[in-house]
Design a protein around this nucleic acid. Sequence first.
DNA 1: CATGAAATCTACCAAGTGGTAAGTTCCGCT
DNA 2: AGCGGAACTTACCACTTGGTAGATTTCATG
Lengths: 228, 228
Amino acid sequence: MTDQISPTEPAKPAKPTKGQRTRARVLDAAAELFSGSGFHAVSLRDIAARAGMTHAGLLHHFPGKEALLIEVLGRRDREDAHVIFRLDPDTEPRDFLAQLVGIAHRNMNTPGLVGLHAKISAEAADPEHPAHRYFVERYRLLRDRLTRAFAALAARTDPPGDYDPALTAQMLLAQMDGLQTQWLLEPDAVDMRAAMVAFFARLGLDFSDVPAFPNLHSGAPPEPPHHP
Amino acid sequence: MTDQISPTEPAKPAKPTKGQRTRARVLDAAAELFSGSGFHAVSLRDIAARAGMTHAGLLHHFPGKEALLIEVLGRRDREDAHVIFRLDPDTEPRDFLAQLVGIAHRNMNTPGLVGLHAKISAEAADPEHPAHRYFVERYRLLRDRLTRAFAALAARTDPPGDYDPALTAQMLLAQMDGLQTQWLLEPDAVDMRAAMVAFFARLGLDFSDVPAFPNLHSGAPPEPPHHP
DNA sequence: CATGAAATCTACCAAGTGGTAAGTTCCGCT
DNA sequence: AGCGGAACTTACCACTTGGTAGATTTCATG
């Protein structure tokens, strides 16, 4: 449904199997519902229904609920944050950070996905949670990348930055997450982009001119359309 | 069980009814379990069992699961954050902020309660969630208090602070929340107190000498003892 | 000690959970 | 066309959920 393909398939590397298409549809549905109510509060039947199936049919594609969750999370990474992970580690640090501002701003169009991240990351504090390892490693990676970016940037700016790169990386990540919590509760009370620009400003970095949408990946509409 | 009271009750303002005591016991149990697994993932039977009761017995004291949650949250406020809400609005701003650093540091002894806040605030993004209003208003109040503190402080410091009080308040709150998320996932990787001190430092404020435990309220042990 | 209320239990309910088994329908391929 | 496997369904399972009804215990007080 999300990706409607015209009958006379034009030029695409490999047309997706029907199974692959339903798989994607299920993932869309799961992402939406997990986003709305967290992991535990959503049933396989809910997800299957939204995908136009029975929950048993769904289980034909995924071994279980947990597997579904980690695939949803993984796909979000591949879509949204491949900017962060895939980007050449030696990219110009300023560009790298600018991407983050852009992402923060863009997230303001996808409350569902933002909510997914917030809810699951909170639940995942429990080491038994299926997504625990995922989030631990995700934060490690992000902190590492950001630390290197800040270190490079501090050495490069005119009056060299006197901030601790590692600590600053942690603070920036924390602020991004915390802003999301507040913004989800009361969207009008929070401007995530402004807060991030202010954060950089206090480090002596001017990011006020970062475009709203830097060149993220090509497709992927802001949020998969609802079809209840 | 938690509070064993000697038969010859000594000097207490008003000895708590048995009902009040079990009520408190149930609230302790609920707080612990909600902290560990969020709201949806915990059953009334779990809570009742930990309190040494049947779930039906529990429901004699509380009208339902949701009511239990909001009472748990309310009690946490009365215990932990009454510093913030009860404090005279015109307290010396520096002292006020220092209290926050102290709270952040102290929270590092109570992962359970921190987890409760994180999980429920994430879930509560849904306007239908029983704790939605609670969190919206909590953040409003906190932002307001902090904004005033920063405003007062900016005007008072020697080179007047050039930061926006409202935005700074939001950023500080966001950082506190976000740090908790990371800290819950990987406690050794995060020093919440250090990050907050660094935050203030970037505003030109030195809070590095804030004592670990400022004068919080009198009693209330760091975390209610487990008794499984 | 009797009494009435509070506290608590046993037993039950209807609804929902994730998951399984065994059929049936559909689709792509040779 | 028709075969074979993928896709999907219906029906079921054992279990848990929040909540209720009514009986029974506990307890402070007269």
